[in-house]
């Protein structure tokens, strides 16, 4: 490689490294703001501000969903298997909402540490399976692969 090309190559690589470092620093500084949601552990530790709109994400705890008989009110517990947060919501839940499903709820924390949600989004994992496989897995006593570490 002739010296002029080498010089240009180093200039370009230097430029790229500089921009890369700048962006990395900015992203580290913004770490908290880029996260889409707080985990129940973060909420339990008081890292989430009260009385402002926040998002809480986690798994809907098994057997925790309570639906009201005469309205669309619903209450359920969101867990990351370390801490729990109770979520109250009025409205239509997405199709994928079920116990054991990952969800993200938008709302405000009240004084009791409950999340009064005005929007609930379902989060699905990266596993896709034909229905027969899940049926076979359930029959053999294994449920779908648990992804608890993510929440």
């Amino acid at each position: 490689m002739n010296p002029q090309r080498k010089k240009r190559l180093f200039i370009v690589l230097g430029l790229l490294a500089g921009v890369g470092i700048a962006v990395a620093l900015a992203l580290v500084a913004l770490q908290q703001n880029i996260n889409l949601f707080y985990s129940p552990t973060q909420i339990a530790n008081g890292e989430a501000p009260a009385h402002t709109r926040i998002r809480a994400g986690g798994m809907v705890a098994e057997g925790s969903v309570q639906r009201s008989a005469d309205s669309l009110d619903v209450a359920f517990v969101v867990t990351d298997y370390a801490a729990n947060v109770t979520v109250r919501y009025r409205g239509i839940l997405p199709d994928l909402f079920r116990e054991g499903q990952g969800i993200v709820a938008l709302g405000r924390l009240n004084d009791d540490g409950e999340l009064i949600a005005d929007e609930v989004l379902a989060k699905h994992d990266e596993n896709y399976m034909p229905p027969e496989v899940t049926k076979a897995l359930n029959e053999s006593g294994q449920s779908k692969p648990a992804k608890a570490a993510e929440y």
Partner: peptide
């Protein structure tokens, strides 16, 4: 829309 319940979310 059908899966999450939202057309757009400002996630990363």
């Amino acid at each position: 829309k059908p899966t999450w319940g939202a057309w757009w979310v400002w996630d990363a």
